[in-house]
Amino acid sequence: MNKIIEVTNLRKNYDSLTAVKDISFYVEQGKLFSYLGPNGAGKSTTIDILCTFLDFSGGEVYIDGLDLRRHSQAIRKIIGVVFQDSILDDLLTVRENLTLRAGLYTSDKTEIRNAVYEAVQTTELGEIIDRPYGKLSGGQRRRADIARALVHKPKILFLDEPTTGLDPQTRKSIWNTIKQLQSKNGMTVFLTTHYMEEAAESDYVIVIDHGEIAAKGTPAELKTRYSSDTVRLFASDEAGLRQLLHDQKLDFTMSAGEFVVKLPDTMSAIPVLENCQTCISGFQVLQGTMDDAFIGITGKELRE
């Protein structure tokens, strides 16, 4: 196991406010790592620090064995960043944009041309390479942004909410590209996201809230720990059902006229249903989701 990013007691103070409070975590090489949190939790601050863009107030950060404080220039060569905002030039074509930005890393012309070609292939931009960036659709822009981040073949790819604001289909295809970069090219991917289904597909998740780590683990671990499976019962005889559940020593809550019972796993629904058969007109068994886990952890909805 190789820790490509290692953060120890990271702290960032703004004038009167502490945006990040003594966070520690590490990222394994070649893994897809999700950084999750509600708005204002400190996600962008952390990513800005890791991308050498923002100074930090305390703690230590090592990226690929390099001290972020002392070797920021060396780190910049091995990281690629996809920012939340578009960072390419509207008036230049995709090719011009990529060629210029590749020129920030090397001055070898053939190397630049090959790198641009490869980045374009990976992100499937071939057809629109000579169109001005400003005339592209949202999804195409995002692809171009990713191509920009790949143009110097980084070891680590940082993405700050890469799929926010895209339609569901485009989101899916961008997500597939990201997944492929990680699985095929073995790139380490560090992303912040708003979408649970994306976090659920990553190797490791950290949930941050109020500048502190609220929970961490694999998606499966988080689901088990912070969300539970439930059965929802539609009562035909409310008083009877209440009595039956009470007899079985099952806790329940009422939601929209339905009885919601928490279960250790979905299979446990069967005996409950058998016992309550006479008093219900229908039921629904729900598996815990990352959404539930997130609400369980932070106590708030993520997408507002």
Binding site: C51, T52, R76, I87, D89, R101, L104
Partner: peptide, 13 residues
């Protein structure tokens, strides 16, 4: 304004 400079600050220039 468009925060394009972020991209330059995070590259080795």
């Amino acid at each position: 304004v468009k925060k394009i400079d972020k991209d330059f600050y995070s590259s080795p220039i």
